[in-house]
């Protein structure tokens, strides 16, 4: 699985573990928002990339193209200037639509800083 240029812009690193793709966003100037905190847009970018990665991993082969229809992001805590992780969970894959839930956290996965739901359209080859 490869990440797009935008993921490099955010400095994202893809980690494959037993649960599937995990995305790491190290702190950098490119993700800084108001002084002392991560930018909500950068956190959303991380959530969206993690959502797409989770869906692509669950689809297996690379023959299906996925396209975000919409995303809804809840911000629960201010993002501090430290490593941030995100993982998506595919809640349903249909023939044409998939639903994915994503959470982002810093030190403790049980204390998410943001969560998102994405609806994605599937373009199956053949």
């Amino acid at each position: 699985m490869s990440l797009p240029p935008y993921a490099d812009f955010l400095g994202l690193k893809l980690i494959m573990d037993a649960e599937g793709p995990l995305l790491l966003m190290p702190n950098s100037d490119a993700v800084l928002g108001r002084p002392g905190f991560l930018h909500g847009g950068a956190i959303s970018g991380l959530l969206e990339i993690a959502g797409i990665a989770a869906l692509q991993a669950s689809l297996g082969d690379g023959s299906t193209r996925v396209k975000p229809i919409n995303v809804t992001v809840d911000f629960m805590r201010g993002g501090r200037l430290v490593d941030t992780y995100a993982r998506g969970r595919v809640t349903r894959v249909g023939q044409r639509i998939a639903n994915v839930a994503i959470e982002a956290w810093q030190d403790d996965p049980a204390r998410p800083i943001a969560a998102a739901r994405m609806n994605m359209s599937l373009d199956r080859a053949g």
Binding site: P5, D8, G41, A42, S44, G45, E48, I49, P68, V71
Partner: peptide, 22 residues
């Protein structure tokens, strides 16, 4: 180009548009 989300089409990722609107 550094904000591209799909290298095949060259379309911008959705994240930068989210940031712009935020």
């Amino acid at each position: 180009e550094k904000l591209i989300g799909n290298t095949e089409t060259g379309v911008l990722a959705s994240g930068p548009i989210f940031s712009l609107m935020d």
